[in-house]
Deep mutational scan, measured.
Amino acid sequence: MTFKLIINGKTLKGETTTEAVDAATAEKVFKQYANDNGLDGEWTYDDATKTFTITE
């Protein structure tokens, strides 16, 4: 399955995708991506669209 991450950061904005077997796996990938890029914010997830959002 394809999951999307929408980034609404103070300095970084955009989106990225990952292929994962489930939402929990995708969340780990996206949280590592956010950590690697210095993002810290509030996370939301929409199961209907398989989309995570981080807002700083």
Score class of each variant (00 low, 15 high):
residue 53 T to W: 09
residue 7 I to N: 02
residue 21 V to G: 11
residue 8 N to R: 11
residue 20 A to N: 03
residue 4 K to N: 06
residue 32 Q to M: 10
residue 37 N to V: 13
residue 55 T to A: 07
residue 47 D to M: 09
residue 35 N to D: 11
residue 43 W to A: 01
residue 6 I to F: 05
residue 11 T to L: 13
residue 32 Q to A: 12
residue 48 A to D: 13
residue 28 K to P: 03
residue 28 K to N: 09
residue 28 K to L: 08
residue 16 T to P: 03
residue 45 Y to V: 02
residue 3 F to I: 02
residue 11 T to H: 15
residue 19 E to R: 08
residue 22 D to P: 01
residue 11 T to Y: 12
residue 28 K to C: 07
residue 49 T to P: 02
residue 50 K to N: 11
residue 30 F to S: 00
residue 44 T to L: 07
residue 35 N to C: 09
residue 13 K to H: 13
residue 50 K to Q: 11
residue 11 T to W: 13
residue 29 V to A: 08
residue 17 T to E: 09
residue 32 Q to P: 01
residue 2 T to S: 06
residue 12 L to V: 13
residue 18 T to S: 04
residue 5 L to W: 03
residue 48 A to L: 13
residue 38 G to F: 11
residue 53 T to G: 03
residue 7 I to K: 02
residue 7 I to H: 04
residue 12 L to S: 11
residue 11 T to I: 14
residue 4 K to E: 03
residue 2 T to N: 10
residue 50 K to C: 06
residue 15 E to Y: 14
residue 23 A to P: 09
residue 23 A to D: 04
residue 46 D to P: 00
residue 22 D to Y: 03
residue 51 T to N: 03
residue 24 A to R: 11
residue 33 Y to L: 06
residue 43 W to Y: 02
residue 46 D to W: 04
residue 50 K to P: 00
residue 41 G to K: 01
residue 19 E to V: 15
residue 39 L to K: 02
residue 29 V to D: 05
residue 37 N to F: 09
residue 4 K to M: 10
residue 29 V to F: 15
residue 5 L to Q: 00
residue 42 E to D: 12
residue 29 V to T: 12
residue 42 E to R: 11
residue 1 M to L: 15
residue 10 K to W: 08
residue 41 G to H: 02
residue 18 T to R: 05
residue 17 T to N: 06
residue 1 M to I: 15
residue 1 M to R: 08
residue 34 A to C: 08
residue 4 K to V: 10
residue 49 T to A: 07
residue 16 T to D: 03
residue 6 I to Q: 06
residue 33 Y to V: 05
residue 23 A to K: 14
residue 39 L to H: 05
residue 52 F to T: 00
residue 22 D to G: 04
residue 53 T to M: 10
residue 34 A to E: 02
residue 19 E to W: 14
residue 38 G to A: 10
residue 35 N to W: 13
residue 22 D to L: 04
residue 47 D to S: 14
residue 27 E to G: 06
residue 3 F to T: 01
residue 29 V to R: 08
residue 13 K to E: 05
residue 27 E to A: 12
residue 34 A to V: 12
residue 47 D to N: 09
residue 46 D to I: 04
residue 39 L to V: 12
residue 50 K to F: 10
residue 4 K to Q: 06
residue 31 K to W: 07
residue 20 A to D: 02
residue 8 N to D: 10
residue 17 T to G: 04
residue 13 K to A: 08
residue 8 N to S: 12
residue 28 K to W: 08
residue 17 T to F: 15
residue 21 V to N: 10
residue 5 L to I: 03
residue 34 A to P: 00
residue 39 L to A: 04
residue 23 A to H: 09
residue 3 F to D: 01
residue 44 T to P: 00
residue 15 E to A: 10
residue 31 K to D: 02
residue 28 K to R: 11
residue 51 T to V: 07
residue 38 G to V: 04
residue 40 D to H: 14
residue 44 T to M: 08
residue 5 L to E: 01
residue 28 K to I: 10
residue 16 T to V: 14
residue 49 T to R: 07
residue 16 T to A: 13
residue 20 A to W: 02
residue 51 T to C: 06
residue 18 T to C: 10
residue 1 M to V: 14
residue 34 A to R: 02
residue 20 A to C: 07
residue 6 I to C: 05
residue 43 W to I: 04
residue 26 A to V: 02
residue 38 G to Q: 10
residue 33 Y to N: 02
residue 37 N to P: 01
residue 35 N to Q: 15
residue 25 T to E: 12
residue 5 L to G: 01
residue 42 E to G: 06
residue 24 A to S: 07
residue 1 M to T: 15
residue 52 F to E: 00
residue 21 V to Q: 13
residue 46 D to H: 06
residue 44 T to C: 07
residue 10 K to A: 09
residue 51 T to G: 02
residue 34 A to S: 05
residue 23 A to S: 13
residue 37 N to H: 15
residue 19 E to D: 10
residue 27 E to D: 05
residue 15 E to G: 08
residue 12 L to C: 10
residue 56 E to A: 08
residue 29 V to Q: 09
residue 19 E to G: 05
residue 10 K to C: 13
residue 1 M to W: 14
residue 5 L to V: 03
residue 37 N to Q: 13
residue 48 A to M: 13
residue 33 Y to F: 13
